Amino acid sequence: MFSMKRTRRAGIVAAIAVGVTIVAAGCAGGGTGDGGDGGDGGGDANLSITMLPKNLGNPYFDTSTGGAEEATAEFGGTFEEVGPTEASPTSQVQYIQTAAQQGAGGLIVSANDPEAICDALDEARSAGVKVVTFDSDTNPDCRDLFINQATAEGIAQIQVDLIAEQIGDAGQIAILSASANATNQNAWIEMMEAELEASHPDIELVEVAYGDDDDQTSFDKTAALLQTYPELKGIVSPTTVGIAAAARYLSTSEYKGKVALTGLGTPNQMREYVEDGTVTAFALWNPADLGYLAAFATQALITGEITGADGDSFEAGKLGTFEVEDATVLLGDPYVFDAENIGDFDF
């Protein structure tokens, strides 16, 4: 099932107040001005940007879309967000095809599956559309550039460190992931498993459950994990939908304060659960900055400022200068939110 198309134009910029920028790259300068001043042939560049998140109605992607829309307004492009309501492997194909048919200059996509959308992306690129993935990558052959929120190793490490600290480095834990096909989730989980085996012999990972990035499904999976494993000491949820649903369940259950919960979430989602003691600490990057960076990278590809080759560099407005390595641009390191600092952020 597909949702109705939701359209936003660049002139209607979402008001997302990001109190502090998490990106390691320092703030440098303002926007690039109107689109087309940089790179080859920029004046005639097609700066029509289409954003395709995994699914609509997801607070994380609402925030990243806001950042992309802000950037597109700064460089004078037009912006549209489209997408499915459910994050299934092939649900994005129709939107990719439509964007190409409508003559989009650039497509920014977070992939639900690394392979399922590749044929559609190849067709779009053959039609001249620049394809940038963010958050969750495709097969590298299917896109021009990947905007990585942080290294997979760094994301896996911070989550293992947090849960180990919170449960005293011993006991049973479970992972509550998004969909079984999510590229980024699976990479992080594989590295978490390796880190647990190598450095935390007294922690036992009993199950990886999948909430499909759906609030109710994730809520129910949390309940099932706690019923199945009465000795469970902690849950790691590397998905913003999952961690919020798990926190909602724990906050009114007998397990509050007894079962630790950490993972990846946004401050606005998790604030009440940190303040009421359900959650001690969790991590994330700034999704608004991730979308903002993805939009500027797309503009740089469209105008010819970069090609995606190693050593290419471009200006990303308020975030400063970024460099391409292995067809990837890295936003920065994960950031840990806790009771002392969560009030400083609004996204």
Rank of each mutant, 00 (worst) to 15 (best):
Lys5Ile: 15
Arg8Cys: 05
Gly11Ile: 04
Ala17Ser: 13
Val23Phe: 11
Gly36Ile: 11
Gly41Glu: 12
Ser48Trp: 02
Asn55Lys: 15
Asn58His: 14
Thr65Gln: 12
Gly76Asp: 05
Gly83Lys: 07
Thr85Asn: 14
Glu86Arg: 09
Ser88Leu: 15
Ser91Pro: 12
Gln94Asn: 07
Ile108Cys: 08
Asn112Met: 05
Ala116Tyr: 04
Cys118Gln: 01
Glu123His: 03
Ala127Ser: 14
Ala127Gly: 06
Val131Ser: 04
Asp141Val: 05
Ala156Gly: 12
Glu165Ser: 13
Ala170Asp: 11
Ala170Ser: 14
Asn181Phe: 06
Glu190Trp: 00
Glu193Tyr: 00
Leu196Arg: 01
Ser199Glu: 13
Pro201Tyr: 02
Ile203Gly: 05
Tyr210Trp: 11
Asp215Ala: 15
Gln216His: 05
Lys221Arg: 15
Thr222Ile: 08
Thr222Val: 09
Thr228Gln: 14
Leu232Arg: 00
Thr240His: 12
Val241Gln: 14
Ala247Thr: 10
Ser253Trp: 03
Gly257His: 12
Lys258Trp: 01
Gly277Glu: 06
Val279Lys: 03
Thr280Ala: 05
Thr280Phe: 02
Ala288His: 12
Thr303Trp: 11
Glu305Cys: 02
Glu305Phe: 04
Ser313Val: 12
Gly317Leu: 07
Phe322Leu: 10
Ala327Asn: 10
Asn341Ile: 07
Ile342His: 09
Gly343Leu: 12
